[in-house]
Simulated scan of single mutants.
Amino acid sequence: MVLVVLGIDALDPELVDATDHPNLTLDSHRSIETINSVEGEPSTHELWPTIITGLTPEDHGLKLDDGVAWENPLLRYGSAAANYVIPDGLQTRIGAWLLNNTGEDAFRVPATYYQKNGISTVFDGREAATIGIPNYVVDPENEDREHSLRRNLGDLFERNGNAPGGHTSADPVAFYEQCLEMSMVRLARARRALRGGQKELVFAYTSGLDLIGHVSYDHPTLQMQAYGELDEFVGEVVGDLREDDELLLVSDHGLQDGVHTHEAMVAGTSPRLVEEIDSVLDVRAAIEAELRHRDHSGPDGESLSIEDNDAVTSQLEDLGYM
């Protein structure tokens, strides 16, 4: 039996509707509290480590000193000293230039960080598949298609402090297509891990909805179109669930008018999955409670047939992802 957790960055509780988005709301869904960074907005960089550890950013140590401007790894060294010698506005402009003009990925802290710092995660001691989780990178030498696309967005996604959402796109429609492709990759990988039947926990993350939201302040129909398509993608995961499998959706914050909002959300195939989650700090405990409540052991459990597994593999191969 498998528990699947899909981390959907910026899934907003105010923008989902049980009638229009049955697979984004599942059997039970609710709004939950999130945590703001020092910049006043929820930060992806900080929040996914919080979700997998149950710790505040102050306790797990992955914090931003200057919002998105300092997410780039090139700025990590000496950033504390820079706060004393570089004015905040210039810091932001330097950070924006680096994010726009280098190939570095902002969310690539290796999984070994947690062990080295004595920090436990929801994955410890479990047969788990971890797919694309920000700042929990099992193999820093490899990247999947979402990482590659995100790292090479170029002028399709540029940081611009003067824009309503802090970002602009040279071609929002082309950017939309690329972001949906990114989401397809991650959810297809989750389906593959689920169908394999060898893991008790499958935890996959995608940033496509967040990225689209940041540039769609002038194109609100694009954002809602993304919700509709993502609902269909998640529906394919739902279709792969066996009788005893469960699915939990988690977001780190919402996003409206191009800006992060201060509400996140959860949704589950059982009310039991979400009823004890009041904030992002509770997600780890809820996952662990579910794994204790039911036998989600993987290796000795029933897996789908080779033919079913091959069907998903074939889809990934046709898309060029395997």
Rank of each mutant, 00 (worst) to 15 (best):
T102Q: 07
N117C: 07
H214C: 07
L26H: 07
G154M: 05
S120I: 05
L99T: 13
E290K: 00
D300N: 04
H167C: 05
Y321F: 13
A204S: 14
D144N: 14
E229F: 04
G67E: 01
I131K: 03
Q225L: 13
L319S: 06
L255S: 07
N36R: 14
A163Y: 04
N83L: 13
R292L: 10
P271I: 02
P13L: 05
S183L: 08
G268T: 02
I8N: 03
L211K: 12
N160K: 04
Q115H: 10
G161R: 15
E33G: 10
A285F: 02
T92V: 13
A111F: 08
L11E: 06
L153E: 06
Y321E: 13
G197D: 01
G67Y: 04
Y321S: 12
I287G: 05
V259D: 07
I119M: 10
N142Y: 15
P140Q: 03
H21E: 02
A188M: 15
A81Q: 15
N135Q: 10
G125P: 05
E33K: 10
N142H: 15
Y114T: 07
Q225Y: 11
T130G: 03
A311E: 03
I32K: 03
T269N: 02
L11Q: 04
A18M: 12
L255M: 12
Y77I: 00
R284I: 07
G125T: 02
V2G: 05
D124L: 09
Y205A: 03
A286W: 02
N160Q: 06
E158R: 14
Q223A: 07
P22S: 03
V109D: 00
L153V: 12
D240K: 10
W70T: 15
Q198N: 12
G95E: 08
G67A: 08
L55Y: 13
N142W: 15
E41V: 10
P140R: 05
T269M: 09
T25G: 09
D278P: 06
D66N: 10
E58R: 12
L98K: 04
D231C: 00
R292H: 12
H147S: 13
H253Y: 06
R30A: 02
M265K: 02
T261N: 09
V259H: 09
A82D: 09
W97M: 11
A226N: 00
L24E: 01
G61E: 09
A285C: 06
D65I: 09
E146G: 01
N142K: 15
Y113M: 08
Y205H: 14
R191P: 03
E288D: 14
R30W: 01
T269A: 03
W48P: 10
A10Q: 03
H262C: 04
A128N: 04
A190T: 02
G103H: 09
A106Y: 07
R108E: 11
